Amino acid sequence: MPISKEKALELINEKTKQFQHLLDTATYNTRYDAEYYEAYYGTEGLLKELFSEEEVRRFSLRVSASRSIRVVTPFLEYEIELLTYKKHISKCIWQLNVYKEYKTSGKTQK
């Protein structure tokens, strides 16, 4: 049974709030904790249900937390790791807002 547009928007908003909470409370020691995994993998499940398995792969590629900078000092490593995590969470929020827009407009994600 397909999910109604209203329910889909509600679920997307819930995931966005989860990621916003992660961003607001992010520390080096709390990154990639149980709350993160619940939000991230829950989002993948939601996207599979709302769109497709292919959209889950696209989401993963769009929000990847890749690091392009290598640093030698441990202090800077700590800061860069946290910054990379925060950028990743921000990308997740941004992408969820894109999905919300698609559901609101009735278009399909490409």
Rank of each mutant, 00 (worst) to 15 (best):
L50S: 05
F51E: 02
S52P: 03
E53G: 08
E54D: 13
E54I: 02
E55W: 00
E55G: 02
E55Y: 02
E55H: 03
V56W: 00
V56I: 05
R57S: 15
R57V: 14
R57Q: 12
R57W: 07
R57L: 10
R58M: 10
R58V: 13
R58Q: 11
R58G: 02
R58L: 12
R58T: 14
R58A: 11
F59I: 05
F59L: 02
F59A: 03
F59Y: 12
F59V: 02
F59S: 02
S60Q: 11
S60H: 14
S60W: 05
S60P: 01
L61C: 08
L61M: 10
L61P: 00
R62Y: 10
R62Q: 10
R62A: 14
R62H: 12
V63S: 04
V63H: 02
V63P: 01
S64A: 14
S64T: 13
S64P: 00
S64V: 14
S64R: 13
A65V: 02
A65H: 09
A65K: 02
S66V: 12
S66I: 12
S66T: 14
R67H: 09
S68C: 00
I69G: 00
I69P: 00
R70N: 12
R70W: 11
R70P: 00
R70F: 14
V71A: 05
V71K: 05
V71G: 08
V72L: 11
V72P: 00
V72N: 14
V72W: 13
T73M: 03
T73S: 09
T73E: 08
T73H: 06
P74C: 04
P74W: 09
F75E: 15
F75L: 12
L76A: 07
E77C: 00
Y78V: 08
Y78S: 06
E79H: 11
E79D: 10
E79S: 09
E79I: 08
I80M: 10
I80G: 01
I80V: 15
I80T: 15
I80Q: 06
I80R: 09
I80E: 11
E81C: 04
E81A: 15
E81D: 15
E81N: 10
E81K: 13
L82A: 04
L82Q: 03
L83R: 06
L83F: 10
L83G: 05
L83K: 08
T84N: 09
T84S: 12
T84A: 09
T84L: 02
Y85H: 05
K86M: 12
K87V: 13
K87W: 08
